[in-house]
Design a protein around this nucleic acid. Sequence first.
DNA 1: GTCTATACGACGATAGAC
DNA 2: GTCTATCGTCGTATAGAC
Lengths: 193, 193
Amino acid sequence: MPRNPTVSNDVLLDRLTHLFRMVGYESASMARIAAATGLEKSSLYHRFPNGKQQMALEVTERVGATFANVVLAPALQHETPVAKRVETIAANLREFYKEGTMPCLLEALSVEAVNESISANLRSAAEAWIGVFAAIGVEAGMPRRRARQCAQDAVANIEGALVLARVTGDTTAFERSLKSLPNQLTSHDDQRN
Amino acid sequence: MPRNPTVSNDVLLDRLTHLFRMVGYESASMARIAAATGLEKSSLYHRFPNGKQQMALEVTERVGATFANVVLAPALQHETPVAKRVETIAANLREFYKEGTMPCLLEALSVEAVNESISANLRSAAEAWIGVFAAIGVEAGMPRRRARQCAQDAVANIEGALVLARVTGDTTAFERSLKSLPNQLTSHDDQRN
DNA sequence: GTCTATACGACGATAGAC
DNA sequence: GTCTATCGTCGTATAGAC
């Protein structure tokens, strides 16, 4: 019988996700993970026989799925006007990144290249994100090639603003990156060089 | 007498900088540092009595200085046309980030918040960067407030593109972020929302 | 100023009781 | 399924010879 009430798989992964996003992979020691999740190390190995790497792998899988199926999902509601969908996505991103105060797994885990599976998950998530943004641009009338560039730039904008927020403590650039999303993704006149 | 030819302080810091930029702080173990620098661990402690933290501290100081005094220095040549200076800075950034393939210390070290001095150095470097970009905007006729926003956005663009490059392997967004610098920093018409 | 050798704590991971 | 207790390794850091 567990001394402490068992932590559900969902809550467990939530807490792991939070920790990995905040401190990355190497800084998230088993001791810190145990403290953050409320489970002892050996209990964690029972759930994740392959240890930390498996935790990070499952976290990247789950976050990738959540990001696609929740945050970016409004993109698929083709009955809703494009502008409206972009606004909804912006709101979702604001929430997902906690107004710019919570780092992205892409930044947190990409520096310390843990293993190829994790890197592949991060790459897939990033490319799915860009793909969704590009599809919006195409729908709004952009040529495919330009839509893809604008999509990349919009994602880069958001990611860079998160870096800036973490380093300087100023989240205003993040807020602007969301505010300018409609223009970046659907505008007909070229905003770039 | 040293068995191996002594490594100069400059070369030593160059190699430390490279390693920290590539793998971050925690992944840069003393063993890896020894391998990367060509010095044994105890020799490294002779040069950096406070160990890894001192190495990271000196690296952030030096990179901050280099960035301000070399990469961004052309901004101060007021006899040169603004457009020309921005182009020179873009070229310097391209070189500094090796066409987008070499990470920025801001990303590499900001996730694992090592200590307050290092964080302060990163913050200073980022703010100096934004300050220089903003000054260029003001010089080009932007209102102070808007120049600062454009400067932040330009930096965020570059940083985000570097994240994207590391995750997806695609450096085209990085190249675009440099190409669009002139427009971002000196353009009179508002590119943002 | 660099080396070899070593101390010692923290790390990821496992064994076995309940 | 969670716990306590423990293993071996690798981490940072130091001692002392040259």
